[in-house]
Amino acid sequence: MIHQVHGDAVYSYTGGKPFNPDQPTIVFLHGAQNDHSVWALQSRWFAHHGWNVLAPDLPGHGRSGGAALRTVEAMADWVLALLDAAGAQQALLAGHSMGSLIALEAAHRAPARVSGLALLGTTWPMKVSDTLLAASKDALPSAIDMVNIWSHSGPLPRPACPAPGFSSTGMSRRLMQRLAERNPADLFHTDFSACNAYANGAAAAAGIACPTLFVLGARDVMTPPRSAQALTSAVKHGKIVTVDAGHAMMAEQPDAVLDALVAFAGGVRQ
């Protein structure tokens, strides 16, 4: 579905379902150098089980127009504008990696509009090494390779892989390459810089009152579970679910991630 947000055409995957004001809404927010497709299984399930789904490509990513936004705060404001464009007064926000910071900041800025938060592969501060920041600007193929190696728990597909010969690392690498080809203006560097610079995590987390779920990857080396303690400690009522996966948990353990989201969303919906 296409919406107009801040004068630009925005693509959101909706599962092919029209917006129904009588249903709850869930928004799936992707991470750096990704698009809506990383949520393929989870977004489709919700779309076919009584939820309005918005899985947008952020500005400058995938099929959405406009330039990539340079701060988490600007992305959070953009998400709230997307809710306006879609006609959703309130939504559950599910964000992965950079998307988790966007969801957190959006809930901080407009708490009445966020019914729940699901933060996956999250941490704060979400610092990026100087080496990776430099590579994301000046040696993009190397940066893509590094992130893909670090995001997956191993070189082989997990038992839930869709078919023999399927490579989640290969699929992730090709997605990042395609996004770089389609949106070449330092997209990866812009995303990484936004994560690295975001400074409002502690204040945002301390003020969260809505139901909150943390989904952490036991083998995640990009955002290790121990690094999320500042967030999980700040949100006293938050629930933590750990899945046997690396940072790319939606690909490595899609069913476990979906199960965690379904159980959490059922409580939010009631």
Rank of each mutant, 00 (worst) to 15 (best):
K239G: 01
L213D: 01
I102M: 03
Q229M: 13
V53Y: 03
R226E: 14
Q253C: 13
T123Y: 01
L258K: 04
S37V: 13
G31A: 12
A163L: 06
E252G: 10
F28M: 10
P224E: 04
A194S: 09
V79R: 02
E252H: 10
G121F: 06
R63N: 09
Q23A: 14
K239H: 15
G267N: 11
G170K: 06
L140R: 12
G7H: 11
L231P: 03
F264R: 10
S115C: 05
P159V: 10
G246V: 12
S12Y: 11
L54T: 01
W78S: 01
R219Y: 12
A248E: 10
M126V: 04
S129G: 12
N148E: 13
E181V: 09
M171P: 00
L156W: 12
A112K: 14
T131Q: 15
R219N: 14
T169Y: 00
H30Q: 13
R109D: 06
N52I: 04
D220N: 07
A230K: 13
V215D: 04
T242W: 01
G116S: 05
L175N: 11
G165V: 08
A40I: 07
L156S: 14
M98D: 00
L231E: 01
M249R: 07
A265V: 02
Q90T: 12
F192M: 14
D130T: 11
D191F: 03
G31N: 05
A81F: 06
M146S: 14
S64P: 09
P125R: 10
D77K: 05
P225K: 09
H96Y: 03
S151M: 15
G65M: 09
A228E: 07
L231V: 05
F192G: 02
G16T: 09
G170V: 11
T242Q: 14
D57T: 08
C210A: 15
L54I: 06
Q177Y: 05
M249H: 09
L140Y: 12
V53G: 02
Q229T: 15
